[in-house]
Design a protein around this nucleic acid. Sequence first.
DNA 1: TATCGGTTCGCTCACATGAGCAACATCTGG
DNA 2: CCAGATGTTGCTCATGTGAGCGAACCGATA
Lengths: 328, 328
Amino acid sequence: MDETDELLAIRAAELYYEDAKTQEEIGAILHLTRWKVGRLLARARELGFIRIEIVHPRARRLSAERMLREKFGLKDAVVVQSEHRSAPEIQARVAQAAADYLTGMRPVPRTLGVSWGRTLQGVADCLRHGWATRVDVVQINGGVSLNRMAGTASATAVEIAHKGSGQATLLPSPAILEHLETKRAIERDRTVAQVLEKARAADAFLFSAGVADASSVHVDSGYITAADVDELVARGAVGDVLGRYIDAAGEIVDTQLDDRTVGLGLDEIRRAATSIAVIAGRPKHAVTKAVVTSGLCTVLVTDEESSAMLLSDQVAARVLNGGSRRVG
Amino acid sequence: MDETDELLAIRAAELYYEDAKTQEEIGAILHLTRWKVGRLLARARELGFIRIEIVHPRARRLSAERMLREKFGLKDAVVVQSEHRSAPEIQARVAQAAADYLTGMRPVPRTLGVSWGRTLQGVADCLRHGWATRVDVVQINGGVSLNRMAGTASATAVEIAHKGSGQATLLPSPAILEHLETKRAIERDRTVAQVLEKARAADAFLFSAGVADASSVHVDSGYITAADVDELVARGAVGDVLGRYIDAAGEIVDTQLDDRTVGLGLDEIRRAATSIAVIAGRPKHAVTKAVVTSGLCTVLVTDEESSAMLLSDQVAARVLNGGSRRVG
DNA sequence: TATCGGTTCGCTCACATGAGCAACATCTGG
DNA sequence: CCAGATGTTGCTCATGTGAGCGAACCGATA
């Protein structure tokens, strides 16, 4: 396309998009046939001169979603716009997007296994009353029931269930126990065992991931110490999923600690038909990468920046080209 | 439009604009009829959720141009995009736009009266060889021929003429003379008188405007002193057109100074069928306003920000509602 | 000058889309 | 509870638009 044509294309684009003229009219104005005008417009779009943006708090980025699905073999992906947004705003939008995703799921899951945390509480808050009818919500990992943040974990599950006019089944157990024996004992307890049984049978799972640093909820809740986290990080931990700390490859970092963690195991999540991960924000990039590349989720809800990170060539898609584990 | 519809509209817009799906396909996906989809899209556009931008150095803003034409009764207006651009970039684009405008003029002017200055030199540089055939270019005000910037004024006219394969007729006179008598004598000189005669008969005029401050070319060239400018500003001057200082209402500030200025008078410009003003940049907002509201130009080439200033309610359109002169 | 390869042109045809309209649902005030 | 007003829905039909296809064109080469 030469200089003159480019100018004409721009002129045509202005008349077409800004002045809402038909291609025929533009042809008359610029002394061209309407086909030439059509071709110029196609060229202008092709060369990226026309930029269409959807400006709305709930707008998503479909192209990124398609690429994420393809690269990582995800069943679905939801990417929210994050340009020029503050971190809390992004969290809010991702939560909203996750809520919208749940609401729009077909078939509607009858039993939903949920984790807990700030992110999931946000999702629960964004759900609308009547988002579903008769959902059974089951907690899939131990909660913060013993400490100062009492009730948080259960609140999330209860709210999700309530708004979907269904029932919540809580997991009455700490997240991580001090001794393996205690953990085994708790799991043998009939109530706990029944909940876990039900959790395993859930149609879909909903969870987030935490960063491996001293600000973690698990440190906050007293399940592990800041020193423990430092140790985990030293051994390669990038974050936790359902209270289980994983490295960049998605492998459990400390199997002994993992054995003392109550709830579904990560392999059980990996086997699920539908597991929705809601993770966003720059601090979580490393965990997000680990979750996605190690096949922990079939659906990812995240922000634009994280999606860009995942789509950059630096990130290998382990799920598809199974061999290479080098992901950092 | 309720909440649900708005969400659907956004979803539809994403599928339509980002995924290039047809309205029918979108209907299938969202379980709607294609008409509903069409209506939602129309609604989304109406509410401004869809923003289409033409990203190209030469892109213009047609809507602003239309409003300028209507508000000030201009024959034409050209507004270049200026968002996120530096001042020199904007100057360059405006010059390019003015050059494009000249090139595209129908009928092609046979005689073009031009002024001089940095802006017009920029326009001359942007013109392409062969932009016209046989244009007569006439200088319409006195130039900087006596001082260190010698040749600048003539260079502009000559370049425009040369690139339009025509001839330049220069005005061999200083811009402003010290004594009224000298000015009268010069104007009586046959060569000068002939040039002015030819200038008056030009089909179109092309000029810019200067800011009234010490950085002015006239101070630089020694025609007036910085003190003179301060005095002019104190008396209400906002800038100059063809070396003639005007106030916010477009009136000559100092008639004695004006009488010593060589070249066409502002009223002669006002009477012209086609007078193209090329003015851009924040420092020139005041002069731009004065030029446009006092009917000094029939065509305005400017940047987005200046156009926004002109279109703000603060600016009264004197040309149309003749009475009110309160423009500050 | 004749011929070739590639590009662009104007056109047909099928599909996508918006305007306009009647039927229907929903709200409102007597 | 009903009549009228208002808004919404699904449709027909005219118009707008893009894919595909020979014809024409252009520049290079033998």
